[in-house]
Structures are given as structure tokens and as C-alpha cells.
Simulated scan of single mutants.
Amino acid sequence: MGSPSGPPFDPDDPDRERRERDTEPIPRVPPDEGPGYGSGPGLSDGPSLSDDVGYGDGPAYAGEGRSGRAWINDPEAGYQSPIISEDELAGLRADAAGNAPRRVLPLEDEPSSLVARYLFPTERFRGEWKRHWIHLATPILIGIAATFVLGYLSGFLAGQDVGALTTVAVLLWFAVMGWVAWKVADWWYDRFILTNKRVMVVNGIITRRVAMMPLVRVTDMKYEQTPSGRALNYGTFVLESAGQEQALREIKNLPNPNELYLRVVEEMYEPQAVEARLGKEQDEAKADDGA
């Protein structure tokens, strides 16, 4: 007779062995034996890949940095410092044959007064750039054309003894040139800014507009160059952020797009290399001043 909780025992049942095998108890392994999540050599010994930590400087890093390299714990200082080998910095130095290193855009020591007000104290400034002069091509061409056309028109009207129309032509020329001056001033105050945490665009004369995107949120970045852009060395940057709408997506007419692209990518994926290079440059500058 079978047990009350199951079917009657049948020695000829073809599925009996399979059921017995499937219901065998799973052996338990103590936490200190074999890989697991205990205190032994398991997954807990690897680097922490938690998303809870940020990508800022100092204590915010844990486990591996954005570049995937290991970091050294410094319990006394309370933060983790990067490992930068000489081979990784070799591309920034001239080789034995005297070949020039990879080009890197120069960094300003301090942000301008226009930009400094938008940076918080713990943010590290990497540079600011105005748009390429091609950004002013249309206003300048309109100003030149207006000067020739309205100048000729005012001279012709003056000869016809039509003083009122001559005055209108002169006032119209002043209005066009005022608009051109406004565009030039707007270009001057329009800045693209890079820090160790975000990219920003600040523009506007009367109404100021500040748009920014954290570097850790950038999922894709590209730049485009038209034939004229390749000839004159300017391009358009396009930033993507996880399919979400953002205030900063397309930035047109930026100068030196290839070098600027490398600068932004290096800041995103090799921030420790940037810090090491800047630290070395500062040490060399101090040594030169001391000499």
C-alpha cells in the first residue's frame, strides 16, 4: 500500500526512477567551502560593481573605475587611488626618434569669469571653447551685402533729391549692422565647457541659458563634419543619453572636433590618466620655476 500523500507504489512504473531522481535533496555547502557568497573565496572577493557608487573623485570610486582598471585601497586616506603605468602615458610623450606625441588640446588653468559662476567647488575644470568663426558667416555676409546695397541705394537716392528715402536707407543699414553686432556678441558669450563631471553649454546675452549633461549619463557621442567642416576644421557634436530627452544633445560648429572628441572621451573612460598627466605637468612646471 502506498503512502497516504502519494500514489500507490508500482515497481513497473517507468517514471518512478525519474521522479525519485528529481526529488533528491540538494546538498548544502558550508559558506567557507567552495565559491559562493559567504566569507570564503567566492564572488564577494571580487571588486564591487555596485551602481550605488558614483563616478566622482576620491571615495566615490569603488571596485573598478570607468576604464575597468583596478584601484588600490588606501584606508588611511579614505579613498582609492588609480594605478597608472608608464606605458599608458607613453602616448603623451615624444619617443626616442623624436616623433611628436598624440595631440591634446591645451587646458586653461582657470575658467573665465563668465564660466566660473556655473562650476561648483569640487568640480575640476578641463577647458572652455567658443564656437568656430564659421558660426558668424551668415551675419557677416549679410552685413557686407547690406553695406554695399544700402550704400549704393542711399547714394542713388541722394542724387534724386529724395531726402526722406535716403534717411530710411541709412537707418535700415544701422539696424542691420546692429543685428550683426548682436550676433557677434552672442557668439562671444557662447561657450562649450568640459569638466571632470559634465559637459555644458552656456549662451545668451540678456536671457542666459545653461544646458548640461553628466558624463556618466552619456551613452553615445559622435561628431559630424561636412566637407566645409573638414576644410575649415569644425564639426557638430551629438550626445545621447539612454534614450531620454535631455537639454543638451546637439552642439554645432565646435572647433578642432577630432581633438575635442578625444578630450571628452578620455575624460569619460580614462579620468585617472588625465589626473596623472595634469599632475605631472604641474610638477614639471614647479621644477622649472624652482630652477
Rank of each mutant, 00 (worst) to 15 (best):
S3G: 10
P4S: 07
G6I: 14
P8A: 15
P11M: 03
P14H: 06
R16H: 12
R18E: 09
R19A: 05
R21L: 09
D22T: 04
D22N: 08
D22F: 09
T23E: 12
P27G: 08
R28L: 10
V29K: 07
V29A: 06
P30F: 01
P31D: 09
D32K: 02
E33F: 07
G36Y: 01
G38C: 01
G40F: 08
P41I: 10
L43F: 10
D45R: 10
G46K: 03
S48I: 04
V53R: 12
V53L: 07
Y55H: 11
Y55K: 09
G58R: 12
P59C: 13
P59I: 14
A60Y: 11
A60K: 12
E64I: 04
G68K: 06
G68A: 08
G68Q: 05
R69A: 14
I72H: 13
N73G: 15
G78K: 05
Y79L: 13
Q80W: 15
P82L: 13
S85F: 04
E86M: 07
G91M: 01
A96N: 00
A97G: 00
G98T: 00
R103S: 09
V104G: 03
L105C: 06
E108S: 04
E110S: 07
V115S: 01
V115D: 01
R117C: 08
R126T: 00
W129N: 05
I134F: 14
H135P: 04
L136Y: 07
A137I: 13
L141E: 10
I142M: 13
A146Q: 03
V149E: 04
V149N: 02
L150S: 02
L150G: 02
Y152D: 14
L153P: 06
L153Y: 12
S154H: 10
G155Q: 14
L165C: 10
T167V: 14
T167K: 11
T167Q: 11
T167L: 15
V168A: 15
A175P: 01
K183M: 13
V184L: 11
V184W: 06
A185V: 13
A185Q: 09
W188I: 10
R191P: 02
L194C: 05
K197R: 15
R198H: 07
R198T: 07
V202G: 04
V202Y: 05
V202L: 14
I205Q: 05
I206D: 06
R208T: 11
R209F: 11
A211G: 06
M213I: 13
V216D: 07
V218F: 00
T219L: 06
M221S: 02
Y223T: 03
Q225T: 14
Q225D: 09
P227I: 12
R230I: 10
A231W: 11
L232G: 02
L232A: 08
N233H: 05
T236P: 02
F237M: 06
E240R: 04
S241W: 02
S241T: 11
A242S: 14
G243Q: 09
G243E: 12
E245Q: 07
Q246S: 09
E250R: 13
E250S: 11
I251A: 06
I251W: 00
K252H: 14
N253K: 12
N256P: 02
P257F: 03
N258L: 14
L260Q: 01
Y261D: 06
L262R: 12
V265Y: 06
L278H: 13
L278R: 13
G279F: 09
Q282F: 12
Q282M: 15
D283E: 15
D283G: 14
K286Q: 13
D289W: 08
G290F: 09
